[in-house]
Amino acid sequence: MGKRRLFAGLVSIGSLIGLVGLSSVPAVAAELPWDRLSGPTGVETSIAVANHAYSGDWPVVYVASNKNPVDALPAATIGDGPVVLTDGNTLNLGGKKPGKVVLLGGTGAVAQGIEGQAKALVGDGNVQRLAGADRNATAAAIAEQWVKVNGNPKVVYVTKNAGAGSPDAVVASVLRDGPILTFTSDASAAALKDVIAKLNPGQVIALGVTHITAIGGTGVLPDSNVKAAAGEAAG
């Protein structure tokens, strides 16, 4: 009887292990593969990101200053080519030869020497500069380029871009349904209504700019600034 009870106990334990012991151990997932898009400076990091986003040929590349890349923010929304930064001395495109080079900002942002290097690389007729009297005017020039590439926007994104730039514009740069316009003061915010009107001159609002989206809270972008910018767009 003792042997039979011992055998029955072993069978019961074996059955329990078979039912719950092994099946209750969770599978351990293998370590996920990972990589890093980076370089020793912002220039090389921008090239790594550009190659990740545009692995083939670059039909166009937008070049902005690495020292204060405020002009790079609105240009990223155009969507027909990557944005690469320059140190102001060398046009470093990581060995790529794009079809066209578009410089962002005046010569104080992207030096004349960079423009000369770009022309030597792709030809004079394939180099363009989008610039204005200040960063807001440059953003407006970039918005006009957005329209040339994508057609009239349905949405215009407005944000403050003072100092070293706008973190809100950085995260908004992935948007593709409209350009980003910027301001640095109440006066430049009020001036945006004329910029918005120029994006679709002489046409009804329904066919052009139909909506303005503010990026950031009221501490960054007060309602008064948004209303000033939207003033003529709704009229």
Rank of each mutant, 00 (worst) to 15 (best):
L121G: 09
L121E: 08
V122F: 00
V122C: 03
V122L: 04
G123V: 07
G123W: 05
D124E: 15
D124R: 13
G125Q: 13
G125N: 09
G125H: 08
G125A: 15
N126I: 02
N126H: 13
N126R: 10
Q128D: 09
Q128E: 15
R129P: 01
R129I: 03
R129V: 00
L130I: 11
A131T: 15
A131K: 11
G132E: 06
G132H: 03
G132I: 05
A133T: 15
D134K: 08
D134F: 11
R135L: 11
R135K: 13
R135S: 12
N136C: 15
N136F: 13
N136T: 15
N136M: 14
N136I: 15
N136S: 14
A137V: 12
A137Q: 06
A137C: 08
A137N: 07
T138K: 05
T138Y: 07
T138W: 13
T138E: 02
T138R: 07
T138A: 14
A139H: 07
A139W: 03
A141E: 07
I142E: 01
I142D: 00
I142M: 07
A143K: 04
A143P: 03
A143T: 10
E144G: 11
E144S: 13
E144H: 14
E144R: 11
Q145S: 10
Q145C: 07
W146L: 05
W146D: 01
W146S: 03
V147S: 02
V147Y: 02
V147P: 01
V149K: 03
V149H: 05
N150P: 09
N150S: 09
